[in-house]
Amino acid sequence: MNITTLLFILLSVMAVGSAVMMITSKSPVHSVLWLIVVFFAISGHYILLNAQFLAIVNIIVYAGAIMVLFLFVVMLMNLNAETEPVKNYRLQLVGVLSGGALLLIIITALNKMDVEMPIELKTGDTGLIKVLGLNLFKNYVLPFEISSVLFLSAMIGAVVIGKKD
């Protein structure tokens, strides 16, 4: 067992453990904090795959921006274990059904995955910023630009909505 395997096991335990804690903790604020730990563990996995750019962007976008927004909303609404509404039976049933459907899809996808393809640990250069940039701007330039315009319009939309009059 070398250090990569050790780190992989550590990060996986961290990711799954925090995910379970996120679901089971009573307070929404604690759930959000556990979710942040999950994102860190996933970023650690990216680093093990030598995808530094993806790892750091995952931190910036998910842990740094989206989760701050989640935490913001949860804190603003002051959701606590005591104030949480009692979920009715029908809601729980729908939750179980949709969760089960998602699980089914994930299992099918994992079954179909080509396990023969070797995973490049620490050596692959696919995730390095130069390779990624060339790939994005040569092979996938149209989807990349379209999504950029989408983000830009979302940002301008926020400015327009924030305009007071």
């Binding site: 750019f53 750091i56 962007v57 931190i59 910036i60 842990a63 740094g64 921006a65 701050v68």
Partner: peptide
């Protein structure tokens, strides 16, 4: 980008 990550 690391700097940005930590700042965020």
């Amino acid at each position: 980008l690391y700097v940005f990550g930590v700042v965020s």
